[in-house]
């Protein structure tokens, strides 16, 4: 049973690490600010979920698990808020989001 838990936890940690790394690559590859923010939002949402879930499985039902849950909740609440503040500040400063008003091929 312990072995199974270890494997699941290891899987979560590894996929979390892979997603975080892909987000980092995306933040470098994307052409403009808003598309970069999409890549960064991978590392801000799925990364913490998977990695903290993986560490929580290692911790079991203990006090550190509760603290980890609090950290995860806090990251998931503040991450989008910070992104939104960044987007609106950039928009106010005149950084135009590229792309059309309606999605292409939608009409």
């Amino acid at each position: 049973m312990d072995g199974l838990l270890d494997i699941v936890s290891w899987l979560l940690l590894t996929t979390g690490g892979v997603f975080v790394f892909i987000g980092g690559v995306g933040a470098l590859r994307m052409p403009d600010l808003y598309t970069r923010m999409h890549a960064a939002s991978i590392t801000d949402s799925i990364g913490p979920i998977l990695i903290i879930a993986g560490v929580m499985l290692q911790a079991g039902v203990t006090l550190p698990s509760v603290k980890l849950a609090a950290i995860l909740l806090f990251l998931l609440l503040t991450g989008p808020t910070a992104s939104n503040a960044l987007a609106s500040a950039a928009l106010l400063a005149g950084t135009k989001p590229g792309g059309s008003k309606t999605p292409a091929g939608e009409d």
Binding site: G24, A40, T43, I51, Q58, P64, L68, I71, A82
Partner: peptide
């Protein structure tokens, strides 16, 4: 704003790193 975005990313990574390192 790109720099602020990058700094924010580094901050999130640091939190995760601290969580993993503590274990």
């Amino acid at each position: 704003y790109d720099r602020v975005l990058a700094v924010n990313m580094i901050g999130t990574k640091t939190v995760l790193l601290l969580a993993v390192v503590s274990f």
